[in-house]
Each structure stands twice: as C-alpha cells, then as structure tokens.
Write a protein that binds this DNA or RNA. Structure first.
Lengths: 189, 189
DNA sequence: CGGGCAACTTGTCGCTGGCAAGTTAGAGTG
DNA sequence: CACTCTAACTTGCCAGCGACAAGTTGCCCG
C-alpha cells in the first residue's frame, strides 16, 4: 500500500507478488516455493521473508490484493451496466483472469484470515456484491434479500470454481464470463 | 478397491487414507505430510510411497474415493426423495461431511486428473447429478437442459465451497444442508 | 560526514518428498 | 512340510524447502 519505492531491487514486494501469482496459476498454491520466487526475482532465498514474514504472510498479501481487485471489478461493472447479471459475469471473469488470487482468497487455510487488512478488503468485496443485488428490477423483501444474495453469490462462485477446476465435461468456449451468462440468467434476469 | 487384506499392518492403505482425510480437514491439503501420516499410522516414513507412489498418488486415491462417495450420496438422495432440491441439499451436505475429499476433488493441481479411475468415478458423479435434473416437474427442453444442469451444479457447488471456506459473514446454523435449502429453492422448486 | 535504519545476504537447522537397496512375512507349490 | 516367490514393508540417503539468527549494504536525514 505504501508508495515509497525501495532502493536495492526497485520494487521487490510487487515483483514477488506478481511472481507468486504466476507460479500459483501454473502449478497451484501447494507447489509454491518462496525460494523459487526469490530465484525468479534474482534475490537471495531469505529476501521474501523480510517483506512478508513467512509464506502465509505472502499469501495474505495476495488475498488482500485479490479482494480489493474483486471489489474494484464489481464496482466498475455495476457503474457501467447497473445490471446484476453483468455483475455476476464480472465475478466469473475476475476469477478466470485472476486465477491465483481467487484460489488463494477462498482457501483460508493458506493465509491469515484474522489479518485486519484482509477483513477490510473482504468487506469491500462483500459490499460490492450486496450493492449489485439491490439493482434488481424487483428488489426482494428484506428477509428474502439475504437469501437472494446468497443464491446469486453461490451460483457465480460455483460456476467460477468449477470453471477453474476444469470440472465441466464439455468445452464451453474461451470466455468464462460469456459461458456463465446464460447459466446465471436462469436465476434472475 | 481390491478386498484382499494385507498382512503386516492390517489395512494400511485405508488407514492412510483415513488419516489423510483427517489431517486435511484440520489443516488443508497444502500442509499434508506423508511422513506425518506414517507416524500416525505407526509405520515407517516410506510406507505410504509403497501404496500410493507419491503424494499425488495418495491424493488421487482420495479424489477417487470422494467422487464415488458423492455419486453414492446423490443416488441415495434421489431414490429416497426423487427431488432435485433434496439432491442439491445432499450435495452440500456431502461437502460439509467430507470436507477433505471435497477440497481435493476440485483442486486438480493436487492430483493426477488423467488417472482412468478418476475419470470413471467423476463420470459416475456427473451422471448422478444429471439424473437429478431429470426429476424436475417440468423437464426443460433438450437445449436448456444443459444450462439448467450447469445452473443447478453451480449453485450447490458454490454454496458448498463458500460454506467450507467460512466465507459467509453471518452464521447460518450448524447444518450446511438445511442452510442451503432455501437458497437452492430460489433456482427451482 | 556520520548515525540509523530499512533492505537485503549468508549461514544453518530440522523437516519433507522421493529414491534405492535391503528385510520380513505370508501365500502358493511340490 | 520345506522352498520359493512376491507383496509389504524398513533403513538409509539426498536435495530442496521454510524459518530463524546474525551479519552486511546502501540510502536518508540531521
């Protein structure tokens, strides 16, 4: 979050996060190695620990970045289209385009979920999601609103997860968002 | 799958799978250690490799077991209730009660997804899911059937994943299945 | 110009996964 | 009842990893 640039490397922290995202997208979070990241960035094996404390710290930073990016994507979609359907599409598209972040965000055993920055970023994303549901033509009654929100979240999250897992037996095209649209539409227009 | 029982330990293969499920449920798949499993089972550190080849082999076996258990659960629910809604509830309940299996099943980077036994078990589960959709009162037209299936799968899978991740901000009770029912009902009755 | 501190490096430890080579125990055969 | 064959392990080893401790480097500010 701080914008002062370090001296030695230039911006090791960001470089490590980017390298981590790339490595995770290739081989999954379990195969991530701090030493490999250090090698990719051309620094010593202990340099990552200085910025993130330990492996969980690095993944915590990735999760924070992910929740913030997701909130940004959802807000942008809502401002642009005002459509809950398109917000759902944006959710799925975010997952496809930020695979590593998404995988880490929803696997809390990998990072420190009690971190206050995580809580803030997660709430931002949650609020962006809730705001989307309120754009429905027929806003549901107060008590139903919660269930509608859970249903919307579940269907887009499920589609995104299954897409990333390669679980769909038939090919559904290249664009996860376009593939998701007719499916999400079955829940609401 | 072979039923002849080994001699030395009794049934080390099953014991290791059970211990692995327990360990993963506690700390996630990334923290799994073959040597720790061996210690829990009271055997040498190389014993697991004999049964499963390597770590991926063990997780492959876990995934196979998981897909088969899921297929069984879905079939049982359909035979008992004939209701797609209750099949969805059964899906969520399976995830909650077999957390370790479920997490591994849908994280293909952890195991060998090209394994033929995995493919068979996965297809069994897929067929059980499809069969559930056909129990709808108004079976959708052929071309819509695929989308209806994806929507049903997505909403239950998403709910299950979010539940396991502890992503729901408010507490929804102890039983994942009961919590999911009103949410799933929003997609179909 | 000099102290201070952030950004690293170097070195080390215990643990892990994976491989190779041995050992043991039961099952099948004559 | 020996004899052998083989599955089910064990022992020993190596490289890689995460975490920690103790140095070293280089910019910034007074």
């Amino acid at each position: 979050m701080t914008d002062k640039r370090p001296y030695h490397h230039g911006d090791l922290r960001r470089a490590l996060l980017a390298a981590a995202a790339e490595a995770i997208a290739e081989s999954g979070p379990a195969a991530l190695s701090l030493r490999d990241l250090a090698r990719r960035a051309g620094v010593s094996h202990a340099a990552p620990a200085h910025h993130f404390g330990d492996k969980a710290g690095l993944l915590t930073a990735l999760a924070i970045e992910g929740f913030n990016r997701l909130a940004d994507a959802l807000d942008a979609s809502r401002e642009r289209t005002g459509s809950l359907l398109e917000s759902g599409v944006a959710y799925v598209r975010f997952a496809a385009e930020n695979r590593a972040h998404f995988e880490v965000m929803f696997q809390p055993s990998l990072y420190d979920q009690d971190d206050p920055e995580v809580a803030v970023a997660r709430q931002r994303a949650g609020a962006a999601l809730s705001a989307g549901v309120s754009t429905l033509d027929e806003p549901p009654a107060a008590e139903d609103a919660r269930e509608a929100e859970l249903a919307a979240w579940s269907i887009v999250h499920g589609f995104a997860t299954l897409w990333l897992a390669g679980a769909f037996p038939d090919p559904l095209g290249d664009d996860a968002g376009d593939a998701a649209r007719p499916v999400i539409r079955r829940l609401f227009d």
